[in-house]
Amino acid sequence: MGTGRNTTIIRSNYLYDESARIYDHALDLWDGLSQELNYNVMYSKRGVMMLAHNVHDMQSFHRHIHANRLNGVDNQWLTPEEAKAYCPPLSISKNARYPVMGAALQKKGGVARHDSVAWGYARAAAALGVDIIQNCAVTGIKRAADGAVEGIETERGFIATPKVGVSAAGNSSVLMEMAGLRFPLESYPLQALVSEPVKPVFPCVVMSNTVHAYISQSDKGELVIGAGTDQYVSYSQHGALHIIEHTLASICEIFPLFKRMRMLRSWGGVVDVTPDRSPILGKTPVPGLYVNCGWGTGGFKATPGAGHLLAHTIAKDEPHKINAPFTLDRFRTGRLIDEAAAAAVAH
């Protein structure tokens, strides 16, 4: 659901070592994904630029860039003029309410086509003999007397299996509840919108956490725009209009030339957010039950990495060293991976 309907930003310039490893692992895998799936996922490394508008932004971006470089993650600082050269529609007017004081650019970041990713994976998995049962909800997780997984109940009957991997994004709490587990997750609406299609005007992805919006242009020509979640827990798959107004006001502030663009449609998905804004990927207290959740507003970029790591964890019954820190238990031990404090807004 999320994978088929997101704004497709791919980047790996997260602050902490654990995050750098997991997101950069995914970024490496995006490179060969079209070949591996034999399906063009249209991964385009057009660069993701994050704008700095104040001294705090500049300091925290520099910190990110240094941390990223120590981890071998691509990220560089641009002056306002360099940012403008990289993204000509950008206004670097000194008279702006939030002038651009510089930017952090991850050149390897970019976008991919969300539908192609879902279709490509589905086709490749089917070719390997995986049965994909569509429009069939899991309604229960059956456990044996010793607590281990025995199988799942679905709308179309029971499937016996000693191992279950759950990747249910916004509905993860609901699925975990079926196994008697309570998770540190809250599900929020996240909206996005696209404009009418226009000729190529926008060469990269630009994010501004301070003015609070992000934008890119799809290969169909639509401007793809998003920002933060609605404020309350919801599974309704739609959010409020004032969030969209706020998002567009921010876009017009940074890109005055888009003031007269007409918006075509908006939509909302449900994102499962953890307290530290990092995913939970690994084993659960229930033997045979594995989980990949908590990617919140930013899990599309992790698709190939998350898939590989979940598969590894299920096959070996132990996590890969890259996802080993992303346990459920970190909320008990206090060993959080606090990208929430590091980034403050949507990924």
Partner: peptide, 19 residues
């Protein structure tokens, strides 16, 4: 204990339905 702190600080009902 740590378990109870985790429950208090982080674990939420996140109800699909009445909240």
């Amino acid at each position: 204990n740590d378990e109870q702190w985790a429950e208090y600080l982080f674990i939420r009902t996140n109800a699909r339905g009445i909240h």
